[in-house]
Structure formats: C-alpha cells, structure tokens
Simulated assay, not measured.
Amino acid sequence: MPMPPVTVDLRSSRGVVTWSPPEPYDPLTATPCVVLADRAGCGEFPVLQTLLCRLGVPSVRIDAEGVSALDLSFRLGGGSLTLDDGSLTLDGRRVVPTVVWARHFSPRAMPRAGGPAAAMVRADSWTALVRQLASLAPSSLPGGSPGHLEQLAGAARAGVRVPETVVTTDPAAVPARSAARRFVVKVVDEHFLETAPGLLLGVFPQVLEREELARLPAPDFPVMVQEHVEHDAELRVYYLDGAVHAYAVDKPSPDSPWREEARVPVTPAAVPPAAAAAVRRLARLWGLAYGAFDLLLAGAEVVFLEVNVDGDWRWFESRAGGTAVSNAVALMIRKRHLDALRSAGAPPPIEIVDFLLLGTPMAGGAR
C-alpha cells in the first residue's frame, strides 16, 4: 500500500536579495562577486554567505520567491567576458559574476500572478536568465545534471556496481524475471513535486517484498524498480572539486529523514578508498564540480545509488555536528572566485590562512 506523500510547506518563506557584505557597492564600479540563487527556505546558502564574508569574498543571494520585485539589468560588451564586460546590476548595485551557483531555482517556485500565460513567461524568463548567466560566468556550479537513468547507465559503464534496475509501467511483472527477494520502487524523476509555489510533496521510494510488488497496481507512468541491495553501511558522500566528505546514515526506511528524523542517526565517516575513487570517477564523467552521492557499502564492494547535484548538506551537518562540508564549500567557492580574478588580470586579495578567516565553526543547521 503506497505511503501518503510527505508535505513540505515553504509558502511562508519570503524571497529576498541578500548582499554580503551588506554595505552599498559603488554603482560606477563593477565589483567581482559570487552570485547564489536558491529557495528562501533552504539553509545552505545563508551559511555559505557568512563563511564567504569571513574569507573576504563578496556575494549576493537571490531567492526564487522574490524575483518579481528585483530590479535587474545585464550588460554584455564586445569580446569575451572580463571584469569590464558582463556586468550585472541588481537593485542599483553593479557586479560582475565570478562564480554562479543555482540550486533548487525552479520556475515552479515563483509567484503566479496575472494569468497562466503571464506566470509562465515570468517564471521561464527568470529561470532562463539564471541558467544562461551561469554559462557565461567564468565559473559555475554544480556542473552537469545527469538524470537517474543516465547516472545508472554511466556508473555501470564506468565499472561501478549499480542495483539491478527495470524501468516499467508494469512493476508487478518484475518479480517473475528477477531473483531479488526485496525491491525498491521509485519515481524516474525527482522525489519532490511542487503542486503550487512553496508547496512540495515528497514521493519517496518504497521497499517491497516480492509478494507485495507482485500485487502492486500498474500506474499509468513509468517507474524504476530496483533490487534491494543488502549492505553494511549507507554513505552520503559530498564531492567538491576533487575533495570528498562523508556521513554514515542509518535509515529505517527511505523516507525516515522526513517522517521520523529523530530515528535517523548521522555520523561523520571516513570515505573508503574504493568509494572515493568511484565518486571522483563519476564526477569527472558527468563534469560535476559539486554533487551529493548516495552509496552503499556491501562488504568490500561499492554500490552507486544516485547523485543529487542540488543535494543539501546542512541537515547532515546539523545531525552529525560540525560544519565540515560548509567550510569545504566556502573554500571551493573562494578558490574559484580568486581564479576568476587572476584570469581577468585583477589582483587577488592578500592570502590569509584559511582557518583564521573561517574562525569558529557555526553551530546548528537548517534542513
């Protein structure tokens, strides 16, 4: 019997444009700046902005919910983008993007007003601008965005084990063709559906016995049916420009982090060499600068489940304690920002030891 979807209500989140540092920029000078685009209810980028400020990197964060009130213009000069061309003016402040990172920046999140056609044009236009701004900036994240089937096929070709997978509109027929004892049924696309701006429904994987799957009614859309791989540990591994950080997660069921958070222990974990090698190999394959990889460890074997290029990290930090991933993300962005300055011929700021700039780790976290 399918579980009811998990509802996440972000409708009370008010989108804003947040500058760090907050002091007004000189409107006559284009300031090199990191541009972050996300949802107002997500906790990753507010923390990242604080850390970037400590590292001396200016940034601006644009929330998808607040774009309608944003005063924006984007200027393209002749030739390639330099610190004099490609300037972006936001609410009267002129900047040149050095790094652009958009995550969860969906047209479905944007306010709907003025009729269906006007709402669609508004949402599509803002999404297209942010996507193309990322392609024009000297550096952008997360990189590629492979779909689930592309991920599984690519991992298998790269020599990384993946669960036996069938995509079908008749999941009840799968047990007759498989020796697996248990199965995982999941949607082909994202687990969250945004039925209205700010209202998200999570449709999470189900773990079913053979007999349960054989009785499952056929949907009128394709689903993924995978073997349930018996394993010793489940890891969330964060890939950041070659570096890896991991947490061990013990979930009673796939939706436990949302339905019963207190029952999901999360602990920092060392990344086994085989897992680190697999993550780096797949990140190179898909051109990822950032990715949240879900892996299983079955004895000495690494099993790839999926990579989420918009994967959150603050919830894992909050459950496990510490800000290891946040610090690593901030240092990754700072390096890309400085590389953009050097490429444009601008003098980078004076180098200071990173741990002095980051200071005391931040406590707590947001999901």
Results as ranks from 00 to 15, higher is better:
Cys53Trp: 05
Arg54Asp: 11
Leu55Cys: 14
Gly56Ile: 07
Val60Ser: 10
Val60Gln: 05
Arg61Glu: 05
Asp63Arg: 05
Glu65Pro: 13
Glu65Leu: 09
Glu65Met: 07
Gly66His: 08
Gly66Pro: 10
Val67Gln: 03
Val67Arg: 00
Ser68Glu: 14
Ser68Met: 08
Ala69Tyr: 06
Leu70Ile: 03
Leu72Arg: 13
Ser73Asn: 09
Ser73Glu: 15
Arg75Tyr: 09
Leu76His: 09
Gly77Glu: 10
Gly79Ala: 01
Ser80Arg: 14
Thr82Met: 04
Thr82Asp: 15
Thr82Gly: 15
Asp85Cys: 13
Gly86Arg: 06
Ser87Arg: 11
Ser87Ile: 00
Leu88Ser: 06
Leu88Val: 04
Thr89Ser: 14
Thr89Tyr: 02
Leu90Gly: 07
Gly92Trp: 14
Gly92Thr: 08
Arg94Tyr: 08
Arg94Ile: 01
Arg94Phe: 03
Val95Met: 09
Val95Lys: 00
Val96Ile: 10
Pro97Phe: 01
Pro97Met: 04
Pro97Thr: 06
Pro97Leu: 05
Thr98Met: 13
Val100His: 02
Trp101Ala: 02
Arg103His: 11
His104Lys: 10
Phe105Val: 12
Ser106Ala: 12
Ser106Arg: 12
Pro107Phe: 11
Arg108Cys: 06
Ala109Arg: 15
Ala109Thr: 11
Met110Ser: 10
Met110Tyr: 05
Arg112Asp: 02
Ala113Phe: 05
Gly114Cys: 09
Gly114Ile: 08
Gly115Leu: 03
Pro116Val: 02
Pro116Arg: 00
Ala117Thr: 13
Ala119Asn: 09
Met120Val: 14
Met120Cys: 04
Val121Glu: 07
Arg122Gln: 14
Arg122Asn: 06
Ala123Met: 12
Asp124Phe: 01
Asp124Lys: 07
Ser125Gly: 06
Ser125Leu: 13
Trp126Gly: 07
Trp126Arg: 04
Thr127Val: 04
Ala128Gly: 11
Val130Trp: 08
Gln132Asn: 14
Leu133Ser: 00
Leu133Pro: 07
Ala134Glu: 10
Ala137Cys: 13
Ala137Arg: 07
Pro138Val: 13
Pro138His: 04
Ser139Val: 12
Ser140Phe: 13
Gly143His: 04
Gly143Glu: 12
Gly144Asp: 02
Ser145Gln: 12
Pro146Ile: 06
Pro146Ala: 12
Pro146Phe: 06
Pro146Thr: 03
Gly147Ser: 03
His148Asn: 12
His148Tyr: 10
Leu149Gln: 14
Gln151Tyr: 05
Ala153Trp: 04
Ala153Val: 13
Gly154Pro: 05
Ala155Pro: 09
Ala155Ile: 07
Ala156Val: 01
Ala156Glu: 14
Arg157Pro: 00
Ala158Asn: 02
Gly159Tyr: 03
Gly159Glu: 10
Gly159Thr: 05
Val160His: 04
Arg161Ile: 01
Arg161Pro: 02
Val162Trp: 04
Val162Lys: 01
Val162Met: 00
Val162Asp: 00
Val162Asn: 01
Pro163Thr: 03
Glu164Cys: 01
Glu164Met: 00
Thr165Trp: 08
Thr165Asn: 08
Val167Met: 13
Thr169Cys: 14
Asp170Tyr: 01
Asp170Ser: 12
Ala172His: 13
Val174Ile: 11
Arg177Thr: 08
Arg177Met: 07
Ser178Leu: 09
Ser178Ile: 08
Ala179Glu: 15
Ala179Gln: 13
Ala179Cys: 10
Ala180Val: 02
Ala180Tyr: 11
Ala180Lys: 06
Arg181His: 12
